[in-house]
Design a protein around this nucleic acid. Structure first.
Lengths: 115, 115
DNA sequence: CGGGATCCAACAGGATACTG
DNA sequence: CAGTATCCTGTTGGATCCCG
């Protein structure tokens, strides 16, 4: 079991390659809550520019994580949702949330920070 | 339960802020295998520059994830290990590895990619 | 060996304006 | 509404050289 590697042979490196980017994880977190529209994501991800949101969404789509659905209506409507692969990222986000919450928890883990 | 947020109020956003960077996760993955020396990490993380490795290590140290131990010997020796907080990232790395492996698994999850 | 210092390149990502 | 187009900047990270 190759614990250390950097290329595609490492599952962790693969995942990192897909989830890379300042906003990527946050977008997936939002989408785990259900289908979202462009403007909803934009409103939720305070500070993101439309260009960046589009870029990330397209990249995630190319990686098979996000699915884009277009409704030819007036006004136009586009919805973003997770694919089966994308939904399997749930545990990753959960683990991240647990860790993030634990670090600053009032009396959670005093974090002796010693080996 | 604030599912969507971008600032420090969101555990996921907090975690992302710390784990951000192309190499960060990979460094932690290596360190989960035990204490490592600078040159060992450098050899494992093929392609990383000494500057980047130092930068990431220092940032993780500042965030209380990595602990640096200096041995005043000749030749000098420095070891990097995870703090208690850092070791709690194990589940995150595991989840990432599982996802990364599942995406391309031969017959693992066929990934219908449909809602 | 384990970096610090410096310089530089590449790219993610922000601002703004405009379109189908 | 849901982007696209353009421009521009900040940060990341690579290259190189050097020092304790």
């Amino acid at each position: 079991m190759p614990g250390e590697c950097v290329d595609e042979s490492c599952p962790v490196a693969q995942a990192v390659a897909v989830l890379d980017g300042k906003w990527t994880i946050l977008i997936i977190r939002d989408l785990l809550g259900g289908v979202r529209r462009f403007s909803e994501l934009r409103a939720s991800l305070v500070g993101i520019s439309p260009k960046t949101l589009t870029d990330r969404l397209r990249a995630l789509e190319a990686d098979g994580v996000v699915k884009r659905t277009i409704y030819a209506e007036i006004p136009p409507r586009v919805e973003y949702g997770l694919t089966a692969t994308g939904r399997q990222l749930g545990p990753v986000i959960d683990a991240l949330a647990a860790w993030g919450a634990g670090r600053t928890a009032p009396g959670g883990q005093p974090s002796a920070d010693v080996l």
